[in-house]
């Protein structure tokens, strides 16, 4: 394996980690506020469809991003309605949202475009194109560092940089602002927050809205940057991998970035190689596919440090009467 191959794999790692990272941070906000969200997958899927459809119709990818984010936030509002206002089961609500998105996207795609549940391919301004960072071309010939800068760091779509900027932003918002402190408190001990005169319901809705926003960007990235258009069920379990990454990261932003990069790397390797031969021993491609999930189970089992979710997670808040 030469240097260039490694660069290429790492490059595709970054591309594949981006939607995971955005969805993972989305889940981070929601779960830190005590709202479990297994509907990340559905929200991404809805956003992917509406962004691609809008971009295909209007020709503007930015309008697409807006539409995708709105779609995702509508589903978030539904999740909030079910799990905050009506104190329903958050897990069941998430399952319902996933199915709703899986069904509705194909239904609407078929009605609008008649292409078997896909959108037309996006071209030109309908996609997020690669951004070349300054001096990338000039530095390309510098040994080692040149390719790293021009291939690996430069040449991604703007959403990739946005996703990675979201990591410090999330950290700052959650751990250095009053809003973040309250948000985390709502996920650990909502009664205390309520006693302090802050609306638990308001905080939780805010968290769910941020979750919808980030999932929306993740979905839009999938359909308008990573690929050129929407295809049926295109999230392909990424929402669940993001959930796995979130647990793997034990609900912390920087760790979330590293776990998403790890899972992105696994996807990149599985995409590039079918079976991996190490001497006589063959690692089948299915093992690579299953690895993120197996790692998550191991982490959850507490064999590698215990993953403790926010204490009030999954519990609807009922004011004392």
């Amino acid at each position: 394996m030469d240097f260039l191959t490694i660069i290429q794999i790492l490059d595709s790692t970054i591309r594949l980690a981006t939607p995971l990272l955005l969805a993972c941070l989305a889940g981070l906000f929601s779960e830190r506020a005590g709202i479990f969200d297994i509907g990340l997958e559905g929200k991404m899927l809805a956003a992917a469809f509406f962004s691609a459809a809008t971009a295909a119709i209007t020709g503007s990818v930015w309008l697409g991003l807006l539409a995708g984010t709105l779609a995702s936030m509508v589903l978030s509002a539904l999740h909030g309605l079910a799990s905050i206002t009506f104190r329903g089961n958050q897990l069941i609500s998430g399952v319902a949202i996933n199915f709703l998105a899986a069904g509705m996207t194909v239904l609407i795609a078929q009605d609008w475009f008649q292409q078997g549940g896909r959108t037309p391919s996006l071209i030109g301004q309908g996609r997020f194109n690669a951004v070349t960072l300054p001096f990338a071309d000039a530095l390309a010939d510098v040994p080692v560092l040149g390719p790293i800068y021009s291939e690996l760091i430069s040449g991604h779509s703007i959403l990739v940089y946005l996703a990675f900027l979201c990591v410090p932003a999330t950290w700052w918002l959650l751990f250095r602002t009053r809003f973040g402190l309250r948000l985390r408190a709502v996920g650990e001990n909502p009664a205390a927050v309520d006693t302090a005169g802050i609306s638990v319901i308001g905080m939780r809705y805010a968290a769910v809205a941020i979750c919808g926003l980030l999932c929306g960007i993740a979905g839009a990235y999938l359909a308008t940057a990573l690929q050129a258009g929407f295809v049926k069920d295109m999230t392909a379990g990424r929402g669940y991998i993001a959930l796995a990454a979130l647990i793997f990261a034990k609900w912390r932003p920087w760790h979330a970035m590293f776990s998403c990069l790890l899972f992105g790397f696994l996807q990149a390797v599985a995409l590039r190689y079918q079976n991996i031969h190490i001497g006589d021993f063959v690692i089948p491609v299915q093992a690579m596919d299953a690895l993120p999930y197996i790692l998550t189970v191991v982490i959850l089992a507490g064999f590698v440090g215990k993953a403790i979710p926010p204490r009030a997670g999954g519990e609807p808040y009922v004011k004392e009467r």
Partner: peptide, 23 residues
């Protein structure tokens, strides 16, 4: 011209109303 996915939507709505929005 109604695709099969309509069933997935109905399934989602049933889960939503009987499960999550029970209250």
């Amino acid at each position: 011209s109604i695709p099969r996915e309509l069933i997935v939507v109905i399934q989602a709505l049933v889960i939503l109303f009987t499960g999550a929005l029970d209250n």
